[in-house]
Write a protein that binds this DNA or RNA. Structure first.
Lengths: 150, 150
DNA sequence: GTAGAACCTGGAGCGCGCTCCAGGTCAAGC
DNA sequence: GCTTGACCTGGAGCGCGCTCCAGGTTCTAC
């Protein structure tokens, strides 16, 4: 990109658009990933400039942000493809989309629970190591036999 | 495995041991993964029967369980290798291990926070879809123009 | 003793989610 | 008009974390 903020030329359109570089910057996705997502059907074909360069609109960005939330919560590309296909198929698929989201939400809740449980295991281990260090200092340097399972 | 519970022959040892199949069953890891973890140095070389078959001891299992907690919380194999190497190097590495665990714990806390934030985004989306369905029924079948961004 | 299941090793292969590359076209400043 | 950087496409390549395979050995039940 250049300096300033170029209002990208539109293909005879109303709304201001973003180049792929600008979308990459805003979403944190790479250029390649953005093109890959489009090729994979996660996003519908983005509008083009007269010279065939991508011009993203606000709706594209909003959808990408939502996809990122799905990705961050561990949804696979394959499932996101399914979801995107349902969305592209129109309002009649709302029940299916709702079902997918509910299931994903439930799995997410499970994963959060597991992580929290594991977090307490880590805390115990950390406590254990801290105690080991304290004991060591107490006896002024090492103490074979105070070795534990870990 | 056969029926009954065979007390596996020990290599002239004290403690009861487990075969790889039994460890696989208890941990949920596959035979291949268990062998892979050993080859990768995540677990120290497991004891063998006279015929060179693995015989896991309680300490092996405990360590595996802890590794699983690390894995479930998203630690990479490479980091687990580092941790395992420190552990194998003895008590002098306790401060390093503690530092690793603390850092991992902090990252885990971040990831849980992100997941919880995303969970609320999902909840909003679900609410939105539910509302769409309600509206649809209200008007007795469809309603073009009630289409949203998603 | 023998059959069949369980196990061994070294190494190749795989699915996922990108990432990189080659060989071009397009756009903006001078 | 020219340069330089952003962008395009199709397809190959990669790192991770396993998973599978071939070819052989061991264990257990009968």
């Amino acid at each position: 990109m250049s300096s300033g903020q170029p209002l990208n030329p539109l293909p005879g359109d109303r709304e201001p658009t973003l180049t792929i570089a600008q979308v990459a910057e805003r979403t944190g996705l790479s250029h390649d990933t953005l093109r890959y997502y489009e090729k994979a059907g996660l996003i519908e074909r983005v509008g083009r400039s007269t010279g065939n360069q991508r011009r993203y609109q606000a709706a594209d960005l909003a959808w990408l942000e939502f996809l990122l939330r799905l990705r961050e919560t561990g949804m696979s590309i394959a499932d996101m493809q399914r979801f995107a296909a349902l969305r592209a198929a129109g309002n009649a698929t709302v029940p299916d989309r709702l079902a997918m989201l509910r299931e994903h939400r439930a799995e997410l809740a499970d994963r959060i629970r597991v992580l929290r449980r594991n977090a307490t295991v880590l805390d115990h281990k950390i406590d254990h190591y801290e105690q080991l260090l304290l004991d060591e200092h107490e006896y002024e340097y090492e103490q074979p036999g105070s070795e534990e399972l870990t």
